[in-house]
Amino acid sequence: MDAFVLQLLNGLDKGGAYALIALGLTLVFGTLGVVNFAHGALFMLGAFCAVTMQKLLTLSVKVKDPGVTFFDAYKEIPYLEVWFGDTGKAVIDYAVPLSILLAIPVMLLIGLVMERGLIRFFYKRSHAEQILVTFGLAIVLQEIVKTAFGANPIPTGAPDAVAGSAAIGEWLGLGAAVVYPWWRLIYLAFSLAIIAGVFSFLQFTTYGMVVRAGMQDRETVGLLGINIQRRFTVVFGVAAVVAGLAGVMYTPILPPDYHMGMEFLVLSFVVVVVGGMGSLPGAVFAGFLLGVLQSFASMTQVKDILPGIDQIIIYLVAVVILLVRPRGLMGRRGVMES
């Protein structure tokens, strides 16, 4: 039971990340009809918003390190710490949550510029061309980040208060062995909140209603005198913000490097395909489903029977879905079907 709860929690936590990235991806496909291979790069750029915030907060003065005698070594003491002491330290400690404030406007701007500056010229082109140009864009963005921040992962920790693990076993009346890192629980809650926010925006606001109408029948909405294109541009910006926030909050789990977006891109595409291209509930459901499946496939008992299953389970599910139900679990009839 303990093992089951732990793996389930782990799967949900992984699924939260997958769902968040896939959500933006499928939103862009559903509205603009664009297959955006630069979406992983947006996740990465979000993570680097956290790195940037951390670097800004830790701008430092160099002081000679007395512990090193062989040569002149200098250690860096952040100005915030020099000026404000413990208060400064506490602010630096909360760099990741604080970077959400930076990431929202920055990612929105990046999304809008990306859509207006490049993506819109490819609406009427084939999916193959869209994939090529967005993939190229992703590589360009990666190289820019690599030039600015280097190739190595940059440790970006969670605040000390939530750096340890929560004794959920005791809460649930299970064994003391059942513990789970606080930050991962926060990430799960955060992803659920963002998902709820996006759904509420689309479901309960007039703006969202028009967007949904545009997704169903763009032409008719246009005939009603609504500038649906402008709304879709905003939706692209929202998708960029969602991917960016997913990246910001992921930094304490995985120290970011320039390549992290590519690692998630493939996974999130599989999630979108399994959920159904353009289906928002599909992306969320498939995200959690695949996260949970991947987690359970990594259990020793499962790996003993099927060695290596943890590394292929997600793709195996995708293959089965594509064979049996090409439109995905919750996809619209006709999409991806001949």
Binding site: Q7, L9, N10, V178, I253, Q294, S298, M299
Partner: peptide, 23 residues
């Protein structure tokens, strides 16, 4: 108790660490 192989560059190792907790 167990020897578990993890892919190079896995990034998130949590699914391999959780089984350790109650092993």
């Amino acid at each position: 108790v167990a020897t578990v192989r993890t892919p190079l560059g896995a990034g998130d190792f949590s699914q391999y660490i959780t089984p350790v907790l109650n092993s």
